[in-house]
């Protein structure tokens, strides 16, 4: 078991190495670099560019070196927390991302919790009351939730919030707190803003999860072991919670792998519409402007989260499911 965890963790290293190579060369693929597009942008605006400064920057960041050398500089820097320099913002990547990263994590975590808290009871109700009016009603709502795009929902909500309540629901906090250090006032401002994006982003996910939980539970509910448990005299609710629900949990856990990267990159469009201070819009901007260290760091971070997410769900599954833990293969 312990051996399995170690081996499984070590297997991440070659994966991440391959990903970093891919990310680097894909970013390098378009002709030119940031400075060229910067210079041509300035020229287009009719301004003169300070070529000396640009050459200095080029040299400083090794753009005169061959690609392989730059790759190792980049990877080496990341290993000790230096993610490079964002040319567009003229700041180290760390500082550019700054607040946005943990705001994204906060938003995503709250969204996931919201999804689970809503989806679990509804899914269980739908499965145990199959083909009842309640099930039909919830299914109908869920399908609407899946079908309406998030950004559309965001636009609709913004519109009505403005018309009916005269408030703007964009942003994650009042603008005066931007780039301020953390304080109680800032926190409460965030909390009062965050529920709107949570509801908007969470709707589709909740509906999808209800459908999947319902389908999984329906499969399990008619299994023989459920009858066995009832034949022992166990209360029906306890039967449900101890056996079929526990079985159906496996897919939630395998989901972690895809949830983590979706936290960072997900819901960009919604984030742009609502002008949220998350990483999504920044990633898109960085890719557009060939801000390579910023974009590269983002992509690497996404890859890292994917790999970590899969690792977590794999290890959690081996702990939770004895069939995987003791089955053929991992025990040897």
């Amino acid at each position: 078991m312990f051996r399995y965890v170690i081996l499984r963790s070590l297997a991440m290293i070659p994966t991440l190495f391959l990903i970093s190579v891919l990310v680097f060369f894909i970013i390098e693929l378009p002709p030119g670099d940031y400075f060229e597009s910067y210079v041509s942008e300035l020229r287009a605006l009719g301004e003169s560019a300070d070529l000396a400064e640009i050459d200095m920057l080029r040299e400083r960041y090794g753009f005169d070196q061959p690609q392989v050398v730059r790759y190792f500089w980049w990877v080496g820097g990341m290993l000790h927390g230096d993610f490079g320099y964002s040319f567009e913002y003229r700041l180290p990547v760390n500082e550019v991302v700054g607040d946005r990263l943990w705001l994204t994590v906060l938003l995503s975590t709250v969204t996931i919790l919201f999804t689970w808290i809503i989806a679990f009871p509804i899914g269980i109700y739908s499965a145990t009351h199959k083909y009842s009016w309640g099930d039909y009603g919830l299914t109908f709502l869920g399908l609407i939730g899946i079908a309406v795009p998030n950004f559309m929902l965001a636009l609709v909500m913004m519109y009505f919030a403005n018309i009916w309540f005269g408030v703007s629901i964009g942003n994650l906090m009042d603008q005066q707190f931007l780039n301020e250090p953390m304080s109680w006032a800032k926190l409460s401002s965030i909390l009062s803003h965050i529920w709107i994006p949570v509801v908007i982003i969470g709707t589709a996910g909740t509906a999808a999860m209800v459908r999947r939980l319902r389908a999984n539970l329906l499969d399990e509910l008619h299994k023989q072991y459920v009858t066995t448990a009832r034949a022992k005299g166990l209360h029906p609710t306890k039967v449900l919670l101890k056996y079929p629900l526990r079985m159906a949990l496996n897919f939630f856990i395998s989901d972690i792998g895809s949830i983590l990267p979706a936290m960072i990159s997900g819901a960009e469009v919604t984030a742009i519409v609502l002008s949220l201070e998350t990483t999504g819009p920044m990633l898109i901007r960085a890719l557009q402007s060939q801000d390579m260290y910023l974009a590269g760091s983002f992509l690497m971070f996404l890859a890292f989260l994917t790999v970590i997410g899969v690792l977590i769900s794999d290890i959690a599954l081996t702990f939770l499911d004895p069939r995987i833990r003791l089955g053929k293969g991992s025990s040897k």
Partner: peptide, 27 residues
């Protein structure tokens, strides 16, 4: 599934099934 019938299941009447493979929860 009321209290009285549950008190009888498993305690006064036990039950076993055809499929020993699926009658247990694997977890």
């Amino acid at each position: 599934d009321g209290r009285q019938i549950r008190a009888i299941r498993g305690s006064k009447i036990g039950m076993i099934f055809q499929e020993p493979m699926t009658s247990f929860s694997a977890l």
